[in-house]
Design a protein around this nucleic acid. Structure first.
Lengths: 344, 344
DNA sequence: CTGAAAGCGCTTACAG
DNA sequence: CTGAAAGCGCTTACAG
């Protein structure tokens, strides 16, 4: 097998200098059109591809982005949060559309995940995805900032204003969800999900939830908020804990679809009818949501748009352009788990 | 901000030559232990990272693998087959464990997807994933072979023996599924899934299915096989087409869970009880399977193991070691959709 | 419009 | 054990 063709091989065949080959392949108008075409034809024939290592080394950028998905260490190893997978899909596509490659890596929150992609010149910037413990996160972000790494983070706005965060409007989403439940005449709505600063996304959803309740003139009962992380089993446990409290409630707003599905299982097991006895509202609109029984009414995060915006903002950051944090609006997807009709 | 440190900076600080720095950082026993440690300490302090572009250019390998996920163009854009996502997770982990990075790309089957990762020295090898149309595939694989690209392909064994394929044993899986249905006293089992050479994985499952039926002394009724690709809506359509035939049947073996879930929806809509009237068997054991109602009995493909084996074989290929195609055994996951007890 | 030359930051024979 | 030097394959000022 002939070893890989280089620009010198092409130069030789075309009877020009290697510099001219390089220019021609980058389609520089500097080189004579005819020569350019001839060179490009030869390159194609030899199946020549520019060596990225060489060109990246020379130009000092990699045309590659890195995506770090930070998994909750408590998560089942094999089951990645479907919401992230959906984001992964849209980020991959958006990256490709911009002519960049994407390096993907899953990281345990516990590990030393800044992962050095940019330091080692493998990526021009990093996208961070993860429902992790934000307090844990913080000092790692600090380090990234110190190192002048280009990165964007998916999620709630960060207290550190230098961190560029892109996320869906969790506060608005939380309001939307609870307003819908209230409109269905539910009066006592439990919230399943961590409400501490450890998961600011869940917390913002909770705050939106509370605001909707207050706006209706009701009181927020703190006993109806049960911590849960975004897994089915955590949702199952949280719903059981809620039931064990023996406080009456007629609706559950779960901070994620996975939690909602776990809660659904717990309620069924205890003989509680959904949505007749208790309405369940999810969050995310992951594919499973529409297959649940009853199908899950939920707040949809537009992952398609989110992926595009993440990539776009990261590229701006890399190019040194102005960017500011963005909040993407969410919308309600009404299915069956909250009842489809207004009750009276 | 100081620009990125290079090995020369470290050499300067350590009072040694750049060559020695390079050796020390690769932990070469050639350099004096004390010197080595001193250099490593300085590197750490300066937050130095080897420039991958430079080292890759020099060594002519990238320590990177590429994963190409070939999507069925008919697939809903936003909904990637969950089975692939699960594979993606395990491949990412396996790759990281081997000290390699992973470049991920989604490709429409129609596009020019050999994607040149290896040609441009961005990756040392490629993993191909996709329930695509294999006939379409074939000539692209041919091209990869011609170019001497290192690649492994997930799926059925390929007629071209030079193509290294790793896959679950679809024939055995198909037998397993149908044997279980027969053991549940089902006698007329429909198969939903393409049975042509266009999707050899489905075809092998179908052949396994047929073999189980014949082993039982029953006859295979070709009218009970309906084409479907691996999407929920295709399963829905196929089940409707099956019902429209007005041939009685008491079980469906769907070539994938997604098809099974679509079929489930169709049956429910027509008032057919599952599993009382019709049992449904899926394939893959994607996360949704356990949340379906009734939960789906299915054939599990061990994605964890599969990812590891794919990566391992690809690395062997890259290193020029001996490798042969592998068939990974599947196992049955019994849930509720086929009835949990033997009927008599 | 084209070529000769420098240089990106490494690794690794070669010489000592 | 260490250093001087070559060279991986490009891109791009510089000169013409």
């Amino acid at each position: 097998m002939p070893s890989k063709a280089t620009s010198i091989d092409i130069a030789y065949r075309a009877g020009v200098s290697q510099s001219t080959v390089s220019r021609a392949l980058r389609n520089s108008p500097l080189v004579n059109l005819e020569t350019r075409q001839r060179i490009q034809a030869i390159a194609k024939e030899l199946n020549y591809k520019v060596d990225k290592n060489a060109s990246n080394l020379r130009t000092q950028n990699s045309h590659t982005l890195a995506l770090l998905i930070c998994e909750d260490p408590t998560n089942d190893d094999s089951m990645i949060n479907p919401f992230f997978l959906s984001m992964l899909g849209s980020i991959t596509r958006a990256t490709a559309r911009q002519g960049y490659d994407l390096l993907v890596s899953f990281q345990q929150l516990s590990s030393d995940w800044h992962a050095d992609y940019e330091d080692s010149n493998k990526a021009d910037g990093i996208i961070l995805l993860g429902y992790g413990d934000y307090v844990d996160y913080a000092h790692k972000l600090e380090k990234l900032l110190q190192q002048n790494t280009h990165f964007v983070i998916w999620g709630a706005e960060h207290n550190n204003k230098s961190v560029l965060s892109i996320g869906c409007d969790n506060h608005q989403g939380g309001m939307l969800a609870t307003q819908h439940l209230l409109n269905q005449n539910r009066k006592t709505i439990a919230f399943l999900g961590d409400s501490s600063s450890h998961s600011p996304e869940f917390r913002d959803r909770y705050f939106g939830h509370c605001e909707a309740i207050k706006a209706k003139g009701f009181l927020v009962n703190k006993a109806l908020q049960i911590d849960a992380i975004s897994t089915e089993s955590s949702g199952f446990d949280a719903a059981n804990a809620l039931l064990d409290k023996n406080i009456p409630f007629d609706a559950i707003f779960a901070a994620s679809d996975l939690i909602a599905i776990g809660a659904l299982r717990a309620l069924k097991k205890r003989g509680v009818q959904v949505p007749e006895d208790v309405a369940i509202m999810g969050y995310d609109d992951i594919p499973i949501a529409s297959f649940a029984n009853p199908s899950l009414t939920t707040v949809k995060q537009n992952t398609q748009l989110a992926g595009e915006i993440l990539v776009e903002c990261l590229l701006k950051l890399i190019r040194g352009q102005e960017v500011s944090p963005m909040l993407i609006p969410t919308n309600l997807v009404v299915r069956q788990s909250c009842g489809s009709q207004l009750k009276s």
